[in-house]
């Protein structure tokens, strides 16, 4: 290309993508994924739909926590294992021997009858695991 002065214009080599900030970008991506990844997730073997509540406290105490699931078909899972009702007490005694002040996060399906929940809770009481949280999904506003 020839300009007014008749000079041949040099091709500018500086207009490429700046590479100096590439490490920053990679670093940010790394940090982002580190933050958003949950390290230990339990393999859930039962299916459940959580109930909805208006009041919801946040539970982020992940270290002193045991998980208990009661699925649609009444299957009970304690941490990683599917167990029968009679084994619940034994499982929680083992858990409590490791963590004395354990909080049991209960994820129970909406349509499970309370008699089952009650008998599971009785086993929990026998194993002296008394702090329970009923996990629910948060409902923004009261529909009334």
């Amino acid at each position: 290309m020839i300009n007014f002065a008749g000079k041949v214009r040099k091709k500018d080599s500086k207009s490429g993508i700046p590479l100096a900030s590439m490490p920053d970008i990679i670093f940010i991506l790394l940090l982002f994924f580190m933050v958003s990844t949950v390290l230990k997730e339990i393999d859930v073997k039962v299916t459940y739909d959580l109930p909805e509540t208006v009041t919801s406290e946040k539970f982020d105490n992940r270290r002193l926590t045991a998980w208990l699931y009661i699925g649609k078909d009444g299957k009970i899972q304690v941490n990683d294992m599917v167990v029968g009702l009679s084994a619940v007490k034994e499982r929680f005694e083992i858990i409590r021997s490791r963590m004395n002040n354990v909080v049991v996060q209960m994820r129970v399906d909406k349509n499970v009858p309370m008699s089952l929940v009650e008998s599971v809770q009785l086993e929990l009481r026998k194993a002296k695991c008394l702090r329970v949280n009923y996990i629910s999904s948060h409902k923004e506003k009261d529909e009334k």
Binding site: F32, V35, T53, S56, R125, K128, I135
Partner: peptide, 23 residues
């Protein structure tokens, strides 16, 4: 980075807590 940290919701459980009576 700050934007993503603020915007990312880390999955926190919510629900109702209750203390069972001793057996």
């Amino acid at each position: 980075l700050i934007f993503f940290i603020v915007a990312a919701t880390i999955d926190v459980d919510t629900g109702i807590s209750l203390s069972l009576p001793e057996y």
